[in-house]
């Protein structure tokens, strides 16, 4: 058989697939790029084409109408890897621990008005269901991502949601112990399933969760639903909480926004990446516009239902308009060109 010589294979400074770049690769590139084997061939898996998950991956990932010649070329603007994710989140969680410890030491919950405590039971503690739907949706998108650099972002997003499901549960338990008669820890499911304030988000997320095309679910989740959730729960609720003397909730919302803003950064970068595709950019823009048109009314309705029920002072229409303006800006060519 053919004999090769060592000299044919001089040592490399990095993986062969990164060696063509002139600069030294970052840790992020070394451990994050081109990791899926299921995108190497037309058939995602070695199993037969009629196996349900073979069909699923071909239909909802490979044949997605959002197209790009090189999904592996996408890069997370934060260049997050597992190791740094834990470092950052360990620090963030220490901060949240300190907030919780400080406020419980100051008998924060005892000082809340009865009226506000009632509103927390309606508008805050049931949020674990909403956050959990995002945890599930992000996990679906991790499973269906067309490249590892995209998948990793979704993995962190799903982990972030578990973080806030947990912190919401933590606060639920604290509030239950101070205000045992309000139904904390027991009435959340009924509120999530029945209270009008939540039904818009519930409908939005139930429908997002069953939108199997990976790209449409990504757009629905991270470019429409999640910004709406952030606007309603993290910004509006936070402001109203502050006005009602609930500094702890306002600060927790602010901490949660740090995670959300990271998701926004890579999600908008991924959208730009799709719009910048030389072959498919124009089609992708039309497609995303059609998805915005489809999903925005559900998100607007969700924001309006939640915000207008939360407090009379809130201008729910303004919140929805800001979201719409921002979405629109994402698709304007000028926004693309300036980045």
């Amino acid at each position: 058989m053919a004999v090769e010589h060592e000299s044919d294979f001089a040592p490399l400074k990095t993986w062969s697939h990164l060696a063509k770049n002139r600069r030294r690769p970052t840790e992020y590139e070394i451990v994050s790029t081109n990791l899926l084997w299921s995108t190497d061939d037309d058939a995602p898996w070695a199993m037969g084409p009629d196996v349900p998950l073979s069909r699923w991956y071909i239909k909802y990932r490979n044949n997605s109408p959002l197209r790009h010649g090189d999904w592996d070329g996408f890069r997370d603007p934060d260049q997050l890897v597992y190791r740094t994710y834990n470092m950052i989140q360990d620090g963030q969680e220490s901060h949240v621990d300190a907030l919780l410890e400080d406020h419980s030491g100051n008998e924060h919950d005892e000082g809340l008005t009865t009226e506000w405590v009632g509103r927390l039971a309606t508008f805050y503690t049931p949020a674990k269901y909403l956050l959990h739907t995002v945890q599930m949706a992000a996990a679906y998108l991790a499973a269906l991502s067309p490249s590892s650099t995209i998948e990793n972002c979704f993995i962190f997003e799903s982990g972030d949601q578990l973080r806030w499901v947990s912190r919401t549960a933590y606060r639920t338990a604290e509030l239950r112990s101070t205000h045992p008669d309000v139904g904390f820890g027991s009435q959340e499911r009924a509120t999530w399933e029945n209270h009008p304030a939540w039904q818009g988000f519930r409908e939005l997320m139930e429908k997002t969760l069953v939108t199997w095309d990976w790209a449409e679910q990504f757009v629905a989740l991270n470019l429409v639903a999640k910004p709406a959730i952030d606007a309603a729960l993290l910004r509006t609720l936070s402001t109203v909480a502050h006005d009602n003397g609930d500094t702890l909730l306002a600060l927790l919302c602010r901490a949660q926004l740090i995670d959300s803003e990271r998701t926004v950064r890579w999600s908008e970068a991924l959208l730009r990446y799709a719009l910048d595709s030389p072959e498919h950019g124009d089609d992708n823009r039309d497609l995303v516009q059609s998805w915005f048109n489809k999903w925005a009314p559900l998100a607007d309705a969700a924001v309006t239902a939640y915000c207008s029920a939360l407090a009379q002072a809130v201008d729910a229409g303004e919140v929805a308009r800001e979201l719409a303006n921002h979405r629109e800006s994402l698709l304007t060519p000028a926004a693309v060109a300036s980045l």
């Binding site: 499901v165 338990a173 499911r189 999530w192 409908e203 139930e206 429908k207 969760l209």
Partner: peptide
């Protein structure tokens, strides 16, 4: 237990 009490009954699907 509160954090793993997240099942709900879907209505819109």
């Amino acid at each position: 237990d509160i954090a793993r009490d997240t099942n709900w009954t879907p209505k819109y699907v």
